[in-house]
Design a protein around this nucleic acid. Structure first.
Lengths: 182, 182
DNA sequence: CGGAGATCGTTGCCTTGTCAACGATCGGCG
DNA sequence: CGCCGATCGTTGACAAGGCAACGATCTCCG
């Protein structure tokens, strides 16, 4: 999803003047606008770099990372979807791609015959580690280096409040199908 | 673009343990993660609401808004593209859609025969104003209300630094084709 | 003036991701 | 046990956006 950028509503349809003078009215709206802008710019950059250097999209990188961090280096499709914030079909396709280039394997879940797990292959781990360098470097350059510690802390707690509950999904993430091989 | 969510790299491929214990290593990386998460959640919500209530995507809303704020309620495709952060082809298609439902008209630019301008129609203005209510309400609920003034100010200046130059585009936005009718 | 290169908006083709629908399976209740 | 609704992952059809290429035009420089 490309990320749009602005927000403010408009004046009464008064004459037909032209003055873009009255933009900021809802207090704080500029913070929101800045937020959107920052996200759009940075993620686009990061995605480009990751793609150029390793042929991975940001979403794919993220998925690999999630799998790598999971116990047994395996994750139920299910869970992966919500961790990466993608629909189930989206995850199916993303894992299709990762499987096609050998980064991941699909195995049936031992405790639920409906389930599939995405398991990281050694190749996938290698790819991820290589990509991580690029990615973290980018995050540093575009994000971390521009902010001092206080700002980072502020962002973390502020936006944490924003990211958290946000509606009718209060379920804690249940770990799906803890692998019998651990 | 759905927005991916995580970042951290991994441990040495030690044994094959399973402990996701060592995640945060690059200092500040959590701020980044939180940032991504907050964006993904909030924009998805806002987009859904806007879509449901007015049949507008966030990008379309944004484009309408940009046009409405421009002098003469008209903007060169060109300029619109960079304001909404979309490629030129992306803007062509977005304006196609807006034109199809009568929110916008395309007119040739009087001073540059290559140029097109997107002009807001009265219908488009109406749609925008209706949508603005919904949208601002959402922004308030999901974003502004969760942050106090200090946090908002912090976000604005911090992320402002992040959004700003960000690479080889230092050109100030030139206003394209100031309309002869103003 | 005239030609070379840049810029503008559009288009074809491709990728990514969503939604709705599907078959398979799970879980609970009679 | 047997059925019914919920859940899982996949698929087909589709929307949105990017890239590369195009014709038209502009701009600058000789």
């Amino acid at each position: 999803m490309a990320a749009p950028t602005t927000t403010a509503p408009l004046e009464a349809p008064t004459a037909v003047p032209a003055s873009p003078a009255a933009i900021a009215e809802t207090p704080g709206i500029n913070a929101w606008r800045t937020f959107l802008h920052a996200h759009a710019r940075v993620t686009r950059r990061l995605d480009e770099e990751l793609q150029a250097a390793h042929g991975l999209s940001l979403a794919e990188y993220d998925a690999l990372l999630q799998i790598a961090h999971a116990p047994g280096r395996r994750v139920r499709m299910n869970v992966l979807a919500e961790r990466v914030i993608l629909s189930r079909s989206g995850i199916t396709r993303l894992v299709d791609r990762l499987e096609a280039d050998g980064s991941v394997e699909r195995v049936a879940c031992s405790t639920d015959a409906r389930g599939q797990e995405a398991v990281l292959t050694p190749a996938g781990l290698g790819r991820l580690r290589a990509a991580a360098t690029t990615h973290l470097d980018g995050v540093r350059r575009y994000f971390l280096d521009r902010l001092d510690e206080a700002a980072l802390a502020g962002i973390e707690t502020s936006l944490g409040r924003v990211a958290d509950p946000l509606g009718p999904e209060g379920k804690p993430t249940h770990e799906g199908c803890p692998p019998a091989d651990a």
